[in-house]
């Protein structure tokens, strides 16, 4: 007996396996994959901002498959209602009672496609479910399955008839990722593989069970953040608040998310403690969508690049602790 399950080392093995499996079909973008896995470990959610056809669906499906979880997909449209996501109580004549028909959100990995097409009301239903990890219909609360990872996508180049996520809602995503174009070699292989695109499930092996992922998440939350690293992260966060170019710096929730993501990064690296390297790696993906540029907002590709540049500059100016 006497075994301590959920060791961080085990979490690392699991996360590495998931990372490798997803990487087999999602080619040429290991960083995106690792950030998605980190979000999974840190019990966060992912916002993908990219043009359609960049492989967002493949990423989500592969992730779901690798952890042996259920994949669900919601294609957002402007006429969608909250209940279309959460599910409804339906009268069943056979049992003569209302039975709950779970919506598409009841999955382990949920792809919320083109979230900015839905009305704010529907968006907020999704976002609420994301953070509460439960759904309430007709005063009845139902827990969502664990693990629960939402991969939402948003096309930043599309403006007509869309409702871009407000700043406060962007805050709910642990990381915002952009995929971008793969390099020539990777793209070649993607194109060659295209025939199998619908068969992601056949190409990716399930290397973990949802229960193991929950355990890995527990282990991740126990990763130690040394004082020096915490101070470094707080230095970075604090500086976004005093910057002239930023109208709004990183919120406290943002700081919490940054540290959570650092724990995930450390766990993925097989460490039981965080390093400044984790902070540096996760600072842009976790924070770039949380700052508001003066007069620009968070929306738009240009604003996104400007925010990234600003935060990159901040990283270059902040001294790293140690020796």
């Amino acid at each position: 007996m006497n075994s301590v399950q959920f060791k961080p080392e085990d979490a690392a093995h699991l996360a590495r396996a998931v990372f490798t499996e997803v990487g087999r079909v999602f080619l040429g973008k290991p960083q995106v994959v690792s950030h998605a896995v980190i979000a999974l470990l840190a019990r966060g959610h992912v916002l993908l901002e990219d043009v359609p056809g960049a492989g967002k669906t493949v990423l989500a499906r592969a992730l779901a498959r690798a952890i042996g979880g259920e994949f669900r997909r919601v294609q957002f449209t402007s006429d969608m209602l909250p209940s279309d996501i959460t599910g409804v109580n339906v009268w069943s004549p056979r049992t003569e009672a209302f039975g709950f028909h779970p919506g598409p959100i009841f999955g382990n990995v949920v792809l919320a496609d083109e979230i900015n097409r839905a009305s704010p009301r529907t968006q907020s239903a999704l976002l609420e479910a994301m953070s509460e990890r439960q759904v309430t219909t007709d005063r009845q609360t139902r827990a969502l399955p664990e693990p629960f990872l939402v991969v939402a996508t948003q096309n930043p180049h599309e403006h007509h008839g869309t409702y871009p996520l407000p700043e406060s809602q962007m805050d709910r995503f642990l990381v915002r990722l952009t995929i971008g174009y793969p390099d020539r070699e990777a793209e070649r292989r993607i194109v060659a593989m295209q025939g199998f695109a619908d068969k992601v499930e056949t190409l990716v092996n399930a290397v973990a069970t949802p229960e193991q992922v929950v355990a890995a998440q527990a282990a991740t939350s126990a990763v130690v953040v040394p004082d020096a690293v915490m101070d470094y992260a707080m230095d970075l966060v604090g500086q976004t608040r005093g910057t002239e170019a930023l109208e709004m710096g990183i919120s406290t929730r943002g700081a919490v998310s940054l540290i959570a993501a650092c724990r995930g990064a450390a766990a993925l690296a097989g460490r039981t403690y965080c390093l400044p390297d984790d902070v540096k790696e996760m600072f842009l993906p976790t924070c770039a969508h949380r700052v508001v540029l003066r007069g620009r907002g968070t929306a738009g590709a240009a604003a996104r690049e400007e925010a990234r540049a600003l935060l990159t500059d901040l990283l270059a100016r902040t001294p790293v602790p140690g020796d």
Binding site: E146, E211, V214, Q217, A218, A222
Partner: peptide, 21 residues
């Protein structure tokens, strides 16, 4: 012992497993 601030369902499974022995 880490003090975990999370309570997903099934978190006490390791306890049950140990008790089952």
């Amino acid at each position: 012992l880490p003090s975990l601030e999370m309570n997903p369902p099934g978190i006490d499974e390791p306890i049950q497993a140990a008790l089952a022995t």
